[in-house]
């Protein structure tokens, strides 16, 4: 049941990304190109997604103590803005501006079957795994030692 539900919700997400134009690097890069071939479509994607989610979350959290299929809501509680958050986000933004794909745009784009998407996603997965390796093997042990 959980898997069927997650598959269908993933399908709604992927269809939304594709229809919105987020799976198209040319369109995403044009959104960021204010001084050139600017395409403001992404304002509508972000606006539509943000307003719908804000209203949806309000209804969900107002109506239920726990989700339908799980024992509890699993929502990040941290409110700390640290150098990892800022540095990581800056690096992500630079990569997004270079390639035109973000993770949520690239995964659904795999379904369109173009080779460039597979190259991007392969490199992105390598980046996540490399970062995880550095974090768990070097950074966290060093933080534990200094604590």
């Amino acid at each position: 049941m959980k898997r069927v539900s997650a598959f269908l919700i993933g399908a709604v997400f992927g269809l939304g990304i594709a229809l919105a134009g987020m799976a198209n690097p040319a369109k995403v890069l044009n959104f960021f190109d204010l001084a050139g071939s600017w395409d403001p479509s992404l304002v509508f994607v972000m606006g539509g997604a943000l307003v719908t989610t804000a209203i949806g979350y309000r209804i969900v959290f107002g109506a239920r103590q726990k989700p339908v299929l799980e024992a509890a809501f699993n929502v990040p509680a941290s409110r700390v803005i640290d150098r990892y958050l800022v540095g990581g986000s800056a690096l992500f933004g630079i990569g997004w501006g270079i390639a035109g794909f973000c993770p949520g745009g690239a995964i659904p784009a795999l379904g369109l079957g173009y080779g460039e998407t597979f190259q991007f996603v392969g490199a992105m997965i390598a980046g996540i795994l490399a970062a995880r390796l550095v974090n768990t093997q070097i950074l966290q042990p060093a933080i534990a030692r200094s604590a």
């Binding site: 990040p76 958050l85 990581g88 992500f92 990569g95 390598a126």
Partner: peptide, 16 residues
């Protein structure tokens, strides 16, 4: 494209 993908991966990992 590949360089961008790699640093997107590093960035979203550390940026959570």
């Amino acid at each position: 494209l590949i360089f961008g993908g790699f640093i997107v991966g590093i960035g979203v990992y550390f940026g959570s």
